[in-house]
Nucleic acid binder design. Sequence first.
RNA 1: CGGGCCGUAGCGCAGCCUGGUUAGCGCGUCGCACUGGGGGUGCGAAGGUCGGGAGUUCAAAUCUCCCCGGCCCGACCA
Length: 567
Amino acid sequence: MRWSETFIPTLKEAPAEAEILSHQLLLRAGLVRKLAGGLYTFLPLGLRVLRKIEAIVREEMNRAGALEVLMPAVQPPEIWKASGRYEQAADVLFKVRDSRNREWLLGPTHEEVITTLAAAEIDSYRQMPLNFYQIQTKFRDEIRPRFGLMRAREFIMKDAYSFDATDEGAMVSYQKMYNAYVRIFDRVGVQAFPVEADTGVMGGKHSHEFMVPAETGESEVAYTEDGGYAANVEKADSQGPTASTPKECTGSIEKFATPGVKTIEDLTQEPFCVPAKAQIKTLVFIAEDKPVIALLRGDDEANEAKLAVALGTGVFRAAGAEEIQQALGAQPGSLGAVGVNGIPVIADEQLRGAAGMTTGANEDGFHIQNVSVERDLGKIRWADLRTVREGELSACGRPLKIRQAIEVGHVFKLGTKYSEALELSFLGEDGKRGAPVMGCYGLGVTRTLQAVIEYSNDENGIIWPVSVAPFAVCVTALDVDPEGEVMKTAVKLHDELSGQGVDVLLDDRKERPGAKFKDSELIGIPVRIAVGSRSLDKGEVELTRRREGGREGVPVSEAVARVLECL
RNA sequence: CGGGCCGUAGCGCAGCCUGGUUAGCGCGUCGCACUGGGGGUGCGAAGGUCGGGAGUUCAAAUCUCCCCGGCCCGACCA
């Protein structure tokens, strides 16, 4: 391929809309262009990378025994109503209407579709295990698309769905996908670590997210340095906070005035001087239209994923000021659970046995001290609600660290939720009907593409791993006169490498050398051969490997062989 | 959806506060010349509904209001 005959619009400066480096490079290297918020056109160069990643994903899925299918992006709402997700996922669903005003959904994922298919086709345990996958465009009406392809409203995902007759079988299917993901991320050239992930309301232990460490990642991972533990912060637990909770109580509860105190922090100040760990944080949520109180130690943060598990529903939100006033008779800042009746109270495990605590009096401007949780509070349900912090000890006794990461894949053992909701059943060996145990396995293809950029770059631009590089080699002709030795040599090298099946880009543009070097580095081609009169006079061309840096003279006659070695 | 910032040539920006000739600069683009191994130099040129609409005014890129779009923080993200 000749550079002059393709379309690679590189940019010297980063467009103002791009905040993070990988997004800037995506635009600067001419890989994509934005149509509207969260909607991108893939240009020829970007599409080449996308296709290479897809090919690797496809190979590994096939290797793991998954079968490729292609499902419709347009889906009937009925199946979403049947699974209960029509309401649950309402805010991310794109809805469209046809000419007869009938509603359709643009698929954000395909559990409902694949389960509908399976319900019609799977009748016997003999047909399983089965695993279907597709690589397809997904639609999610993200409230806030961000960071280019990282969080887009339309994106490409590989999604797979496994069906097994037994739980043990489902674990085998799960493990196969897990292993395939390890291979995929290894091959595309990102370090993606499996971490334990939140399994939400469905529970169960078997869910892992694949995370690429990156400061710009939108997820947080808690891990131990020895690699013994890694979990999404939404899921992570620890042996508890580093400072212990007060357990001594010196007297009975006592109301005191705290004018102007609105936060935990305020109460730690003069003249009150109540340490945050001796306060009870009172949060009010509306779960399925009913108020619920959650209690945490003052210095702890609530974890919404854990809260969802404790509440038994994902449909909840923080209560508004009016709702709180109605429920507890006070404004945030003076809330507490002492003497509250008729509203369920869930408390974090850290408060077990806590005494001598201070909490709001449910009267604006007043708090209560000497609160003993067991003595002074009514019926409490205990649960793990807190978000772990750096420095706390993991279950294995090592200190936790926390870092940002990009979630590029997720494997999840679903159980029978969808097979039951969509009436999928089979006849087992024992002659009884059963619901297949499902698993779902998502991999963000376009997000992975950007994660590779975020992971692999230097000050000059992207550095593509050979496996996904749009071109493996760039032959930079420093003089493009078609009659000259330089160009003739460049063309010859290009043709020979092409003949060997290598993706080669011949930079035949009438640009100055500096511009060509900069461009080939910006777009990230891993190997470059510079052909110019200076080295050609010595019978050599110059070979540069982006990852190693530096350049070396190589005899023209050996150039092709040397390049092949590099790849 | 709440808070903040922004929208001026393909890209990056200045001008706006304090309204007043032909709205500027850098990069890019086109032409010519020189140059020719790290985004070179010079000369010339094209390119603008100043996001859209309404209003105030003798006069609006500039002031006011409404709308649209973008970015950041938060909420949210099965």
